[in-house]
Design a protein around this nucleic acid. Structure first.
Lengths: 205, 205
DNA sequence: CTCTAAACATGATCGCTATCATGTAAAGCA
DNA sequence: TGCTTTACATGATAGCGATCATGTTTAGAG
């Protein structure tokens, strides 16, 4: 779930001086990707509601008018952006203690925009359109699968995967919610220790 | 955190036929409580943004005009409603396995409006005014205290309290997010089992 | 009992945002 | 090369929602 940080500083300067133009099909595809990427970061940073369509387009280096040439509606963009975020994570196995250590880091807490979409958007998704919820549910299945991949005892591994994944998501939300830095740090560290203690010992990732 | 469900079907009929009136100081206090109660339920159910001031007032049996006689702004209402929700929970100790069982129930999942304000509103609070975040942080401290109350070894108890509280909040959010009932149920059950397994065995609540 | 202030209802206002309407120029086909 | 379509820019539109303005009545002070 910890998506790889992608640096996309769009070369909007290229388009800056030209007014009214049609771009190549290739450019259009890149523009669409830029929109999705900007949306993914903005949504994680501020939630679905607080982000405006115009703002996403601006971040993507375009103006608000062209938006409806790419997406049917803002809800459509939300669904597409979530799918992109969930699909973007590679399906490789995740060894629990090492993964938890990375996930529960202050760096991750302090940078929601390029962090886990579940920690950032799960609550918002609850009230979202069915398609968005379905995408996140599929992401949850995949995450459980990744966390149980290569386990000896499937049953206890599944319990550990679900339990520690819930703890990671909950801890990240609580840590971001807390305005007391010490308590916030402690939530991360203690949850990490808690997961380590309860996890079947696994070699490094 | 699991607030007691309070049935407040206001006797607005009493006010229905009367137009333009000043109410007694006592009535005003009751009205304020009604507003806070309605806000607390609506916010938990649909989040801060999706709930309108007019809607809260309607639910409280009043009209939107009187709102600013009670609160400075919607943000002020949010802060007050959160404080009410967090303070309302009695400070008694919570024995972990029993509390987790109640918390991680399908009934709780299916009724956010009268359920835990943290599971419902923690993510929303992250982007809220400082006062709201401070209130929730204080609530987190209290919750940790309640979960560690009466423990033999303070250190490991604190770790267990934080770890399992994070797991409970995370599991509730994931369970509400999932559109697959079976998976949603499983998240609750497995997280509960995970907490039980990792918890120092405690007698019944 | 009078008078004043309070508490709430009704009815604006004002800004913000999703979405649509129109124009333009270049891409891509014939 | 000329024509048509398209991708995007610019400029509305329209509805919603927080907040304010005003009026009315009665609680509460004297």
């Amino acid at each position: 779930m910890m998506t790889i940080m992608i640096e996309v500083k769009p070369t909007l300067s290229q388009r800056r001086e030209i007014a009214h133009m049609k771009v190549s099909r290739e450019q259009m595809g890149e523009n669409r990707r830029r929109i999705l990427d900007a949306a993914g970061r903005l949504f994680r940073d501020r939630g679905f509601e607080a982000v405006t369509v115009a703002e996403v387009m601006r971040e993507a280096g375009l103006t608000h008018g062209g938006f409806y040439g790419h997406f049917r509606s803002k809800d459509d963009l939300i669904a597409a952006a979530l799918a992109e975020l969930v699909v973007a994570s590679e399906p490789g196995p995740l060894a629990l203690p090492a993964f938890a250590a990375r996930y529960l880091s202050p760096a991750h807490r302090d940078d929601p925009a390029s962090g886990c979409p579940v920690a950032a958007l799960a609550s918002d998704t609850i009230r979202q359109a069915p398609e968005a919820r379905a995408t996140m549910t599929e992401g949850l299945r995949r995450q459980i699968a990744r966390l149980t991949d290569g386990a000896a005892e499937p049953e206890s591994a599944r319990q550990a995967a679900i339990g520690s994944w819930a703890a990671m998501v909950g801890a990240m939300i609580l840590a971001r919610m807390s305005d007391d830095p010490a308590l916030s740090d402690e939530v991360l560290a203690q949850t990490r220790a808690w997961i380590d203690r309860a996890s079947p010992s696994t070699p490094a990732e």
